Amino acid sequence: MVDPLAELPEPELRARRARSFGERAAEYAVHRPDYPAGAVRWCLEPVRDRRQPRLLDLAAGTGKLTSALVGPGREVVAVEPDPAMRAEFARRAPGVPVLAGTAEDLPLPDAAVDAVLVGQAFHWFDPQPALREAARVLSAGGVLAVLWDVLDDRVGWVAGLVDVAETGVCRSRFAGRGLPIHECFTPPDRAEFGHVWRRTAESVTAMIGTHSLALVRTPADRAALLDRVLAYLRARPDGGEGEFALPLVTIAVRAARRQRR
Rank of each mutant, 00 (worst) to 15 (best):
L8D: 01
P11E: 09
R14W: 09
A15I: 01
A15N: 03
R17L: 12
A18P: 01
G22W: 03
R24K: 13
A26M: 09
Y28E: 10
Y28I: 12
H31M: 07
R32I: 08
D34G: 15
D34A: 15
Y35F: 13
V47A: 00
R51H: 10
R51G: 08
P53V: 01
L56G: 01
L58P: 04
T66V: 04
T66F: 06
V70S: 06
V70L: 06
V77R: 13
V79W: 07
D82C: 00
P94G: 04
A100V: 12
G101Y: 10
E104A: 05
A112P: 03
Q120Y: 06
A130E: 14
A130K: 14
R132A: 15
A140G: 14
A140M: 03
V143M: 00
V143S: 00
D149E: 13
V158C: 11
V158F: 12
D163H: 14
V164W: 08
A165N: 04
A165L: 03
R173E: 12
F174H: 14
G176Q: 09
G176F: 11
H182T: 13
F185R: 02
P187N: 04
D189S: 11
A191P: 09
F193M: 11
H195K: 14
R198V: 03
R198N: 05
V204Q: 05
G209M: 11
A214N: 07
R217Q: 13
A224L: 04
A224D: 08
A231Q: 12
R234A: 09
R236E: 15
G239P: 14
E241L: 15
E241K: 15
G242F: 09
G242D: 13
E243A: 15
A252I: 06
A252W: 10
R254G: 02
A255F: 01
A255W: 01
R257A: 08
Q259C: 10
